[in-house]
Computed example of a mutant assay.
Amino acid sequence: MNDELEGKHGVQSLEVGISILRAMAAGKRSMMLKDIALAADMPPSKAHRYLVSLIRTGLVEQDRLTSRYDLGPFALNLGLVALDRVDRIRLGLAAITDLRDVTNETIALAVWNDNGPVIVRWERPRKPITVNVLTGTNLRLLSSAAGRVFSAWLPEAQTEATLRQEIESGKAPADIRTLEDARHLLADVRKQGIAVISRHYFARNVEAAAVPVFNFKNEIAMAIAIVGVKDTLDLETGSSTLAALRQAGRALSVRLGATISSDTAADPAPSSD
C-alpha cells in the first residue's frame, strides 16, 4: 500500500531539488546561495543541504574562489543529450496540426535549405474552399510570409544575394525597389514579430501570415505560416487567428529550447554572423 501511494505522489525531495535546478537555470549565470534560496522560495539552510547533494551528483558545481554555484557537468550532459534527441520536424508537424485544429485554416511548416525557404508539410482545414500548399515548394523571400520571416532573422549575408535577385528580376512586391526598401520591410517584421501579407503575395488571391520558430541557440529554425483565400482570413492586428499563430510559434520555440519571454512572439535578434 505504501509503495502504491509513493508511486502516485512521487518523491517530494526530488521535486525540491529540481526546483533549485530550475531557479539556477532561470538565473542564466552562477549564483550565490542566498539568491538561489530566494529564487527557489526556501530558506538558505534548506537550499544548502540540497546543493550539497546536487554537487555530489554532478548536477551542480561550486566555484571555490567566489562560492557561487552553477550548473555542473552532468546537467550539461543531460541538456546536450536532450537536444540531440529533439526531432524538430516531428514537433513542428504536431504544432501545425494543432494550429489547424484551432483555426480551421491551411497551416504550413517551412524550413531553410540551400535554395531558400521550402514547405516541408502542410495541413488542410475542414472547409469547402481552401488553399492547397504543395510540399517541396520553394518560397520567395519578399513575396511570401515565411520568406519574409526567414529573411528577417537570418544573417543578411545569407540572404542578400537572393534578395537582390528578386528585386532586380521584378519578383519582389512593387513597393520594394531597392535593398534598402527590403531592409526597412524586414526591420518592421522583426519589430512586429510576425510577417503578414494581404497583397503582393506571390500567388494570386492568396494572403498569409508567418512567425519564426527558434532553436536552443536562439537562431531561426523553422517558420509556421497560415494561408488562406484573400479576404477570408482575419489578419488584423489583435485577431484571434494571429494570436493563435503567435502562440504556436512561441510554444514550439520554447519546446526547442529557445529563450522567449512570455509577452512577445519573437525575441531573438538576427545573427550578425
Score class of each variant (00 low, 15 high):
110 A>L: 11
112 W>C: 15
112 W>K: 15
113 N>M: 03
114 D>I: 12
114 D>N: 10
115 N>Y: 04
116 G>D: 04
117 P>K: 14
118 V>H: 09
121 R>E: 15
122 W>T: 10
123 E>W: 09
123 E>C: 14
124 R>K: 12
125 P>C: 14
125 P>Y: 10
125 P>R: 12
125 P>G: 13
126 R>N: 07
128 P>I: 09
128 P>L: 06
129 I>R: 14
129 I>S: 11
130 T>Q: 13
131 V>C: 09
131 V>H: 05
132 N>Y: 09
133 V>C: 13
133 V>D: 05
134 L>E: 10
134 L>G: 04
136 G>R: 02
137 T>P: 00
137 T>Q: 03
139 L>T: 00
139 L>P: 02
140 R>D: 09
142 L>K: 02
144 S>K: 03
145 A>L: 07
148 R>L: 12
148 R>T: 06
148 R>P: 05
148 R>I: 02
148 R>S: 04
149 V>S: 07
150 F>L: 10
151 S>D: 09
152 A>P: 00
152 A>M: 01
152 A>E: 01
153 W>E: 05
154 L>C: 11
154 L>K: 10
154 L>Y: 05
154 L>S: 06
154 L>T: 01
155 P>I: 11
155 P>Q: 10
155 P>R: 12
156 E>Y: 12
156 E>T: 13
157 A>K: 08
158 Q>I: 01
159 T>C: 09
160 E>V: 06
161 A>T: 13
163 L>K: 04
164 R>A: 14
164 R>I: 06
164 R>P: 04
165 Q>N: 06
165 Q>W: 10
165 Q>L: 10
166 E>A: 02
167 I>K: 00
171 K>C: 01
172 A>C: 05
172 A>W: 02
173 P>S: 03
174 A>W: 08
174 A>R: 13
175 D>N: 15
177 R>K: 12
178 T>G: 08
178 T>F: 03
